[in-house]
């Protein structure tokens, strides 16, 4: 008989017991086993919920501990962890929050921000490109080179279009007394997340900048981004020129903030 097959069956059954409090105990197990299994079930849930509380400290403060614990438990039942690191138990929690806090959509955005900052915190160490480095890399560029230019951003950096002012929410969540700020905004806004030295950070930007950043992060060329911006305006010559100016301003912003790692 294959020892790993037998052990594998036992471990599958044991894991089912840990994950599901209503699962019937295996044949031959008595009260003593039930008591022991209740400890393993408790350990499983408490360790994972505590890990999520650590990752989503501000989200928890925003919704309150009881509501957060319910949401975390729901997330863990719907998405039992599979990764070797317990930190990953919180992956995708922003989508869970979008379902559970549908009337408070800022909760999902806040959860996304905390998760993205956690990922940036331990991303690979890469020095950002400084202005002299950028100038040297682009010194011989002609028009076609600029159009074909692609950028590599710092590992872990991300952008997203948002519907709420997370900067205002984040600020009050760092204070002892939570006084809810005005966080509703008209239209869309955007957010850039990256690691500055050893500190994960974010800034709010215009929505078009967040879209452009994500497009270039995923491989679009500078020329394609310029085209996208131009297509969002009218088709006049001045709109084309404005688009180039806007794209240039974004590039300068990313360079000044230290978000660009390399020019390709």
């Amino acid at each position: 008989m294959n020892p790993s097959a037998d052990l594998g069956g036992l471990q599958q059954a044991f894991m089912a017991q840990v994950l599901d409090e209503d699962a019937p105990l295996p044949h031959g197990w008595g009260k003593r086993h039930a008591v022991g299994m209740s400890v393993y079930r408790g350990n499983y849930r408490s360790a994972l919920v505590e890990a999520m509380r650590s990752t989503y400290e501000r989200t928890e403060k925003w919704v309150g501990e009881a509501a957060f614990r319910r949401a975390a438990a729901h997330h863990l039942i719907a998405h039992p962890p599979s990764s070797w690191t317990i930190d990953d138990a919180g992956a995708g929690f922003d989508r869970t929050c979008a379902e559970l806090f549908a009337n408070d959509p800022e909760v999902a955005e806040l959860a996304w921000l905390e998760w993205t900052m956690l990922e940036a915190f331990t991303a690979p160490d890469v020095a950002p490109l400084d202005l002299p480095g950028f100038s040297a890399a682009t010194s011989g560029f002609g028009d076609e080179d600029w159009a074909d230019m692609r950028t590599t951003f710092l590992p872990g950096s991300r952008a997203r279009v948002l519907a709420h002012d997370l900067r205002a929410i984040w600020k009050v969540l760092g204070e002892e007394d939570l006084v809810r700020p005005q966080f509703e905004i008209e239209g869309d806004t955007g957010c850039l997340v990256w690691r500055e030295g050893e500190r994960a950070t974010f800034i709010m930007v215009e929505a078009d900048e967040a879209r452009a950043f994500e497009a270039m992060r995923q491989g679009s060329s500078y020329g394609e981004v310029c085209m996208t911006i131009a297509n969002e305006g009218d088709q006049s010559d001045s709109a084309q020129s404005d688009a180039a100016m806007r794209a240039g301003a974004m590039l300068g912003h990313w360079l000044n903030e230290g978000l660009i790692a390399a020019i390709d």
Binding site: M1, P3, S4, D6, L7, G8, L10, Q11, Q12, F14, M15, V18, L19, Y40, N43, Y44, A47, L48, A51, P80, P81, S82, S83, W84, I86, A89
Partner: peptide, 20 residues
């Protein structure tokens, strides 16, 4: 701590068998 599908992040006990 894990099966092919899930990770418990808890130190789960082994049966003390010769197969294990």
């Amino acid at each position: 701590t894990r099966t092919s599908a899930h990770n418990s992040h808890d130190l789960l006990p082994l049966p003390l068998t010769r197969d294990a």
